[in-house]
Design a protein around this nucleic acid. Structure first.
Lengths: 128, 128
DNA sequence: CTGTATCCGCCGCGATACTG
DNA sequence: CAGTATCGCGGCGGATACAG
């Protein structure tokens, strides 16, 4: 698929597509959720990292960069030595978190249906 | 990260996590959206495929399998020769589509903020 | 503490060919 | 038309080492 051509079902839906992309990023939603509910919208890198056990440092930083670039969070350097950096939600980030929380709520409401199977996205060997 | 240990911030949040996984699957939401809004919740494979220009056949079928396994859709073989298969939303699928539509709406409402930047997930060489 | 750079295995995903 | 199998590449993401 060429970079010049559109990718799927027309351009008029590109904004919703961007919203889906935000959710597709593996850790974005969880980082935002943690930042919002655990740290009240503002936290230092290390603290955030410790709140997300399965997340490697590399992915944390990389995702934070993307989130910053997407306008979901802001990066504040509070001291240079020793380095102290805090990340906080932007207005867009706060609006997106609301959506993320809706997804979390949906998951909780449908936990019984979701627990019944193992979806195991991709590369499954058998439907068993 | 070991398979035996939990992966992030505890198990009590596994259902929300599953919900996020559903969104993380690249095409699931769009297929569901198309199936729901364009085909009224029920469509044949080829028709669905033609409604999603950027999606390869392989990914379509693979994603449909996963969605079926996740309980979002049902597969109906309506005739064997020539093969005619239809996919339709399950109750869970219908509930999930509602959520997907919320995300689409959110994207449309925030299209101005989303259009201002190119998030380009991963492997970016420069911040602008 | 915060962040970058490099190496590298794994697999997501498209292209192609084939079955019924 | 619906689906599977195989190959191949690009990049996701972990581990490690390094810098300020």
């Amino acid at each position: 698929m060429q970079p010049g051509s559109d990718d799927a079902e027309g351009r008029e839906d590109c904004a919703p597509r961007r919203a889906l992309e935000l959710f597709s990023a593996k850790w974005t939603s969880m980082i935002l959720h943690t930042l919002h509910t655990v740290h009240d919208g503002r936290a230092r890198t290390g603290v955030l990292h410790r709140s997300l056990p399965g997340l490697s440092k590399k992915m944390l930083v990389q995702t934070l960069r993307e989130m910053e670039h997407s306008g979901l969070i802001e990066r504040h350097v509070e001291s240079a030595v020793p380095p102290a950096v805090r990340y906080s939600l932007t207005p867009l980030g706060r609006r997106f978190v609301d959506l993320v929380e809706l997804v979390y709520d949906w998951g909780r409401r449908n936990s019984d249906a979701l627990d019944e199977l193992r979806p195991r996205a991709s590369s499954r060997r058998r439907a068993d």
